[in-house]
Amino acid sequence: MSLSAARLGVALATWTSATAEVGQRIEVVDGELVVKKVGGNPHHRIATRLALAFEEQWPGSYAAAPGNWAITLAPDGSVLSGRIPDVLVDGPALNEDPVCTEVPRAAVEVWSPGNTLAEMNEKRSEYLKAHLPVLLEAYLTAEQQVHLEWLDNAGHSWRTAATAVGETLLDIPASDAHPAFRVVPNDLLGRGRS
């Protein structure tokens, strides 16, 4: 087989039809399918409620929780890097296409205790290089408080625009890159203000 005929990555259809065990997801890393562990119920609850908050607050946006994003495509259209952020925010194509192949408007990663620092940094780096405008990171603290960090793509690095924990409002003003966004972190678990 000649090099030009060789597949460089994973076909979109192969990625979307790959199956995993319960509690796992399949991503594409360096052109290979890789099984990743999924967080538990609080993780999913935070992601689901953030997806709804983006749809409510960003006109014309749709959110998939989780969402398939082909970050890097090979010349033959196969996937070299494909991630499944906990939430992917973009336009109506999220309702029609099984994989986002363009740069979405935003992504959310809800980090679990099982995520390693190396894995977190690898995803941050991939998202930065792909020119993702906004990355919202979330995790549950040891005190069972939701922690949020809003990161804007500054070109060469992520810039923290705001953080909020527990009952403190995350208040992101509108910019040229995105609409305004507001949420009280603990409300994402249904424990917020009454």
Rank of each mutant, 00 (worst) to 15 (best):
S61W: 07
A177C: 09
A18F: 07
S194L: 13
S17N: 14
Q24R: 12
S125M: 14
V10W: 01
S157Y: 11
S175R: 11
S78V: 01
D187W: 04
E56S: 10
R105E: 09
A154C: 05
M1R: 14
A6F: 10
R7Q: 14
V108R: 00
V38A: 15
D152L: 15
A138R: 01
A20Q: 09
A174I: 00
T116F: 06
L148K: 02
T19C: 08
I26K: 02
A53K: 04
P75D: 08
L117K: 14
V87A: 00
A63T: 02
C100M: 12
G91V: 05
F181D: 02
R25S: 13
L8W: 10
P98I: 10
L8S: 08
M120N: 11
H131P: 09
P133Q: 08
V79L: 03
A6W: 11
T72A: 13
E27F: 03
E167V: 12
A138H: 00
L94V: 10
N121S: 11
E55N: 05
S81Q: 15
C100K: 13
S17K: 08
V146S: 01
R124I: 10
I71F: 02
A11H: 07
D171K: 12
R191N: 11
L88I: 06
R83V: 11
R193L: 12
H43Y: 08
L136C: 06
P113R: 04
G82C: 07
V28P: 00
F54R: 00
R45Y: 07
D187I: 01
A13R: 11
S78L: 03
L33A: 06
A13H: 09
L169C: 08
R49D: 07
T101F: 01
T14P: 06
A130D: 10
S175C: 04
S112I: 07
A18L: 02
G155S: 07
T16S: 07
A51S: 15
R45S: 10
D90Q: 08
C100E: 08
E119S: 14
E32V: 13
A11N: 03
W111G: 00
Q57C: 06
A154R: 12
D90F: 06
G23H: 07
P85S: 09
D76T: 02
L140Q: 00
G60K: 04
V29W: 03
R25W: 10
S125Y: 13
